[in-house]
Measured scan of single mutants.
Amino acid sequence: DIIVVALYDYEAIHHEDLSFQKGDQMVVLEESGEWWKARSLATRKEGYIPSNYVARVDS
C-alpha cells in the first residue's frame, strides 16, 4: 500500500472529497492526475485528496 502523510489541513469542497488535518496518514487507493482517492487511517473514510497536499511515507 502507498501511505501518505498530510502536509497541510484540507477542508473538503465537494461531497466526494476527504477532509484531513496536517499529520494525518492515508492509504492511496487510486492515483489519477492531481486528485487521488484515499482512505484515512484514523477515520477509515474514503474520498478524493489533492495530491500536492500530501507526501509519501517511506516504509
Results as ranks from 00 to 15, higher is better:
D58C: 12
R44F: 15
E11L: 11
L41K: 06
G33L: 04
Y48G: 03
V28L: 13
V57G: 05
P50C: 11
A42V: 14
R44D: 13
Q21Y: 09
S59L: 12
S59P: 13
Q25K: 15
S19L: 02
G33F: 05
A12I: 03
A38M: 04
V54W: 02
R56Y: 14
A6M: 04
E46W: 06
H14A: 08
E11W: 10
A38Q: 00
Y53K: 09
H15Q: 14
V27Q: 10
E46C: 11
K22A: 11
V57Q: 08
K37H: 09
V57T: 09
N52S: 15
A6K: 01
V4A: 05
L29M: 08
Y10G: 01
E11G: 06
S59G: 14
L29R: 04
E11P: 06
S59R: 11
G33D: 06
Y53C: 10
K45M: 12
A55K: 13
E30I: 10
S32L: 13
V54M: 05
T43L: 03
D58T: 12
W35T: 07
F20A: 02
A6S: 03
M26H: 01
S59Q: 13
W35I: 08
E31T: 14
I2C: 12
V57L: 14
Y48E: 02
H14S: 11
Q21K: 15
A38S: 03
T43N: 09
S19G: 08
P50R: 06
V4S: 02
V54F: 13
W35P: 07
E31I: 14
V57P: 07
S19T: 08
R44V: 06
A12W: 02
L18G: 01
E30M: 10
F20R: 00
Y48W: 15
S19I: 02
I3L: 12
S40T: 07
A55E: 13
D1C: 15
A42H: 10
E16Y: 14
W35D: 03
E30Y: 10
D24G: 03
E31R: 13
V4C: 09
M26F: 15
K37Y: 15
I3K: 05
Y10S: 02
I13Y: 09
E30T: 10
G33N: 06
D9V: 03
V54E: 01
G23P: 00
G47V: 02
A42K: 14
Q21A: 11
I2Y: 15
V27I: 14
I2L: 12
N52Q: 10
D58F: 09
D17V: 09
M26I: 05
L7G: 01
Y48C: 12
L29A: 03
S19R: 05
Y10P: 00
V28I: 14
Y53V: 05
H14I: 05
H14N: 11
Y8D: 06
I3E: 03
E16L: 12
T43H: 05
S51R: 12
V5K: 05
K45H: 09
S59N: 14
A12R: 04
S32Q: 12
S32K: 14
Y48Q: 06
V5S: 04
W36A: 05
I49T: 00
D58S: 12
V54Q: 01
H15M: 13
L29D: 03
A6R: 00
K37P: 07
Q25N: 08
E16C: 15
Y8N: 06
E34C: 15
R56G: 06
S19N: 06
D58I: 12
L7W: 03
Y48K: 09
W36S: 06
L41I: 11
V27D: 03
W36I: 12
K45F: 07
D9I: 03
D24Y: 02
E34Y: 15
E30N: 11
I3S: 03
H14K: 10
K22Q: 08
I13C: 14
E46P: 02
E11M: 12
Y10E: 00
W36M: 14
K37Q: 07
M26Q: 00
D1P: 14
K37D: 01
R44G: 15
I3T: 06
W35Y: 11
A38L: 04
H14G: 14
H15V: 14
V54Y: 02
K45R: 11
D58N: 13
E16K: 10
K37M: 14
S51M: 10
D17A: 11
S32I: 13
E16A: 11
L7F: 03
T43A: 04
M26G: 00
L18Q: 01
A38I: 05
K45D: 09
K22V: 09
G33I: 03
I13F: 10
A38E: 02
V57S: 08
W36F: 12
A38K: 01
V28D: 00
I2E: 07
Q25C: 14
G47N: 00
A55C: 12
A38V: 14
L18C: 02
H14R: 13
D24V: 04
I49R: 00
L18N: 01
N52V: 08
R44E: 12
S51H: 10
V28W: 02
I3H: 06
Q21W: 08
V57I: 14
L41F: 07
I13N: 09
W35R: 14
D1M: 14
L29N: 03
F20D: 00
V27M: 11
D58Y: 09
I49W: 01
G47T: 00
E34R: 13
D9S: 10
D24E: 15
V28T: 03
D9W: 03
S40M: 15
D17E: 15
D24N: 04
A38H: 01
V54T: 04
S40A: 09
L7A: 03
S40D: 09
D24W: 03
K45S: 09
Y53L: 14
D9N: 10
A42D: 10
I2S: 09
S32M: 13
L41S: 06
Y10F: 14
K37N: 05
E16D: 14
V27W: 09
I49S: 00
A38D: 01
E31P: 09
E34N: 13
D1K: 11
K37F: 15
K22G: 04
T43I: 04
V4D: 00
D9Q: 05
I2R: 11
D24L: 02
V57E: 07
Q25A: 09
D17F: 15
I2N: 11
L18S: 00
V27S: 06
D1E: 14
E31H: 15
A6D: 00
E11N: 11
V54S: 00
G33M: 04
A42Q: 10
K22W: 04
